[in-house]
Design a protein around this nucleic acid. Structure first.
Lengths: 141, 141
DNA sequence: CAACAGTTTAGATTTGTTCTAATCTGATTG
DNA sequence: CAATCAGATTAGAACAAATCTAAACTGTTG
């Protein structure tokens, strides 16, 4: 509801064109890594390493450009949980995150079933953009 | 409940000694900036600038050391809202944050009155450390 | 297929943070 | 109260993530 879900087989090429981004070799290849095969979280360095493994010729600068363009185009969301690097999340549905401090592992959980009540009103001149819930985990003891 | 609150006039010196940190000139001066005069949020650079203004001779390295030691000692909490820098919060009570994306302004709101319900159980082997709520704000339209 | 705006790139740059190793200082002890 | 020494501070180097630069390249359009 709300979010217009892409049909699973919309070719990447079309999806990119729709955002106004030219479907170049690099963007197409990165889009495939990111969007084919389920939701995922990546950092720029991770995606770069993965691209190298798949022998996709793409520079780190382009990885950063592309992640930011995809984010601006609404194809990705940034998740801020870790002050040392930026995470990007392909899951656009309403959801929240588990963050395991010890390992840096980031996992989604659906917002369905979660209720945040009693959020105070936004300060004058502002309005609420999004309520983000981060559940920080430690090893069970 | 839970959090042992310091009496407001516990001298800084004692508070530091209690944490096992030697009350040096620098730590004492920084503790005064941080803890006297109400709760606040600072970045390392901000605190350094402030110290310079007050003519407290302290290096940026010491600011970082001190903020991290205070955090480990439980005198400060780190707030992760912004992937470009670390914020430290002197408010140790149970509370959450407004974050105004446009200006970078960070504000507290009390957890009292807020209810987060339906948080799924923690993945096996882990347990919930803390549930953090970040209310991201945009300019009212 | 010419032309050009948009894209990619290597490498330099910037920024926040941590590290290093030399110097200094608060606490302890005789 | 002087000597000692673990712990603290420091300037500057080093590091890592991210952005910028300007030159080369490539989709698209006419």
């Amino acid at each position: 509801m709300g979010v217009m879900k892409d049909r699973p087989f919309t070719p990447m090429l079309e999806r990119l064109r729709d955002t106004g981004l030219r479907p170049t070799r690099q963007r197409l290849a990165l889009a495939r890594l990111l969007f084919e095969g389920g939701n995922r979280h990546v950092t720029a360095e991770q995606l770069h390493a993965e691209a190298r493994r798949e022998e996709i010729p793409v520079s780190l600068a382009t990885i950063y450009n592309t992640l930011n363009q995809f984010r601006k185009a609404g194809l990705l969301r940034e998740v801020v949980v870790d002050s040392s690097r930026s995470w990007f999340d392909t899951n656009l549905e309403d959801h929240h995150h588990f963050f395991h401090e010890a390992t840096g592992a980031l996992t989604d959980f659906e917002a369905e079933g979660l209720a945040v009540e009693g959020v105070p009103r936004a300060p004058t001149g502002t309005e609420i953009d999004r309520v983000e819930v981060i559940v920080r985990l430690r090893d069970a003891g």
